[in-house]
């Protein structure tokens, strides 16, 4: 479906902290972009993760406070200033990444979350109002269940829970399965099994989480090498991790082709 205009992927990655969401989401975004698709990476984690996987520097304050003005009574507290809409915001403030991915974040914290409030409102409005036919969306949520359960992945019709074969990670995955009952339940909810060294781990994860596994990502020392070198896995090495991400892109694209 290279270059096709009819279907845009709207995918968000969630899971326990340390499960590998950011590495997978960033690599997924870049590989999808290599199929001639316009890709917007959406980062709602107030601490840096996705930039490393995309292969760009960390930027703490990507948007100035004056992108928003006070909103109308009874509406959102902050809204994009006159003359700035979702498309022009992306054009101006979404970082250009390798492979042509555009990266939209609200910034990274050195203190209380209130310091990012205006940027968060701007980010949320852009995500609500962007042209859904213009972009494939690939989102990375912070570790844990909070943001996902509060609807931060509403933009996604596919939510992928990244789970590693540890009891804690599977436990969080099981909780995130409750997204299926939320008002903003995604059309597709599935698991990406990460750091797999033993094929039996995939069965354990599937049974414990209770959702289908759409992708299997092997344990790959190249990812650790990339982590230590602050490089994107895609830039540091090929190998099993990258191969499995190619397969994941294909699987997700096929799921859209088959059902939508």
């Amino acid at each position: 479906m290279s270059g096709s205009q009819e279907t845009r992927l709207k995918v968000a990655f969630t899971g326990k902290g340390g499960s590998g969401k950011s590495s997978i989401a960033g690599t997924f975004a870049r590989l999808l972009a290599r199929t001639d698709q316009p890709v917007l990476a959406l980062d709602s984690d107030p601490l840096p993760g996705m930039p490393y996987a995309l292969g760009i520097p960390v930027e703490d304050e990507p948007t100035p406070d004056d992108v928003v003005v006070e909103g109308p009574a009874g509406g959102h507290r902050w809204v994009l200033r006159p003359g700035l809409d979702a498309a022009s915001f992306i054009d101006r403030y979404a970082t250009i990444c390798p492979d042509g991915v555009r990266y939209l974040q609200f910034g990274n914290l050195w203190g209380h979350i209130s310091s990012l409030q205006r940027a968060q409102y701007a980010w949320s409005q852009v995500v609500r109002e962007l042209d859904p036919d213009a972009w494939n969306l690939v989102g990375d949520l912070p570790g844990g269940t909070r943001q996902a359960m509060f609807g931060w992945a509403k933009y996604a019709d596919t939510v992928l829970i990244v789970v590693e074969p540890t009891v804690k990670s599977m436990h969080v995955g099981r909780r995130l399965r409750n997204l299926a009952d939320a008002d903003w339940a995604p059309e597709h909810l599935a698991v990406v099994a990460n750091k797999i060294a033993d094929p039996d781990d995939v069965r354990r994860i599937e049974e414990r989480v209770g959702l289908p596994v759409i992708g299997v990502v092997p344990a790959d020392p190249a990812v650790l090498t990339a982590d230590r070198a602050a490089g994107a896995p895609l830039d540091v090495a090929g190998g099993p991790f990258v191969e499995s991400l190619h397969a994941l892109v294909d699987s997700v694209q096929a799921s859209y082709a088959g059902t939508r």
């Binding site: 601490l47 993760g49 490393y52 050195w110 982590d227 602050a230």
Partner: peptide, 16 residues
């Protein structure tokens, strides 16, 4: 952990 990402976040935690 001995990764730049973890070091970055730990520096923020120490500052807070």
């Amino acid at each position: 952990e001995p990764t730049p990402r973890s070091i970055d976040i730990a520096a923020r935690a120490i500052a807070v």
